[in-house]
Write a protein that binds this DNA or RNA. Structure first.
Length: 272
DNA sequence: AGTCGCCTGGTA
DNA sequence: TACCAGGCGACT
């Protein structure tokens, strides 16, 4: 499940591996991920173009391609972006392949087919881009801004953390981890958090995201880096996925509930 | 704010 | 063999 740390890891690797490469062919084995334009049009616009840069916004990877082309890629739950030699065996779910003049491929692989691609000629033309909230690691995202976001919102804090239009990049894993580290119950209405708790949560959030990036993300589900390697942060997760287990801090039994349709674990003793 | 649908593979 | 996971958009 790629969230901010996983997407950031992929972004940094792609920056090193594919900037400057020229696309000689776009192979579409499954058109479904291509939302717009029509697959044939996308092919036409990208063929024989150079990759100029790679950006990340929330959980989106953005490839900047010669000729005013911005390709927004969302990996959703099981998407992978792998760079490898073009003559290697084609993976079972390799839906879209960008074949470079150098003999390398960038392959978009997605078991569950939820991932998406949108090609636009200006960043702002991708409507979702304009609706994304703060990047939690950006220096402009400080205590004051975080307080403003929580202020007056009755939403449960975990759901607020995962609302991409407020803060962009946090998903189920890191929301749960940050709340555990900060000792805050996922059920607390956002507006009821005390200043001291908001401070703690912000520090936990930034800290965990940075650590996870250092470990190249968590390989929950089938996330891998652009080498096809797993991340190493999965072993550091203290609360996510620990259904029916005991709290790593106090030893009491963890609570497993559904929140906004998503599985949520927390320790009722350590998280208030 | 809650629910559904999109998907496949692992698990009860 | 039925069910569940889950980001996000669409819908209510």
């Amino acid at each position: 499940m790629p969230e901010l740390p996983e997407v950031e890891t992929i972004k940094r690797e792609l920056e090193k591996k594919i900037v400057g490469e020229r696309i000689k062919e776009v192979i579409i084995n499954l058109p479904k991920p291509i939302k717009r334009p029509a697959p044939a049009e996308l092919k036409k616009r990208l063929t024989n173009k150079k990759i100029k840069g790679v950006k990340r916004r929330g959980k989106y990877i953005i490839l900047e391609i010669e000729g005013e082309n911005f390709l927004f890629i969302h990996l959703k739950l099981t998407g992978q972006l792998i760079v490898e030699k073009e003559n290697g065996p084609i993976e079972k779910h390799a839906h879209i392949i960008f074949r470079f003049a150098s003999g390398k491929d960038l392959r978009f692989i997605d078991l569950r087919r939820f991932g998406t691609m949108n090609l636009v000629d200006r960043m702002e033309k991708f409507s979702t881009y304009n609706e994304l909230g703060f990047d939690p690691l950006d220096s402009s995202f400080n205590l004051e801004k975080f307080k403003e976001i929580l202020d007056k919102r009755p939403t449960k804090i975990k759901q607020l953390l995962m609302n991409q239009s407020l803060i962009a990049g946090i998903g189920n894993i890191y929301a749960a981890e940050a709340l555990f580290r900060a000792g805050i119950s996922p059920l607390r209405p956002a507006k009821r958090l005390k200043d001291s708790e908001i401070k703690k949560l912000l520090e936990a959030l930034k800290g965990i995201l940075k650590e996870a990036i250092r470990y190249k993300g968590s390989s929950v589900d089938n996330y891998v880096t652009t080498d096809g390697e797993e991340g190493d942060y999965e072993d550091k997760l203290l609360i996510y996925g620990r259904d029916k287990k005991n709290c790593p801090k106090c030893g009491s039994r963890l609570e497993s509930i559904k929140l906004g349709g998503r599985g949520t674990n927390y320790c009722p003793k350590c998280q208030r």
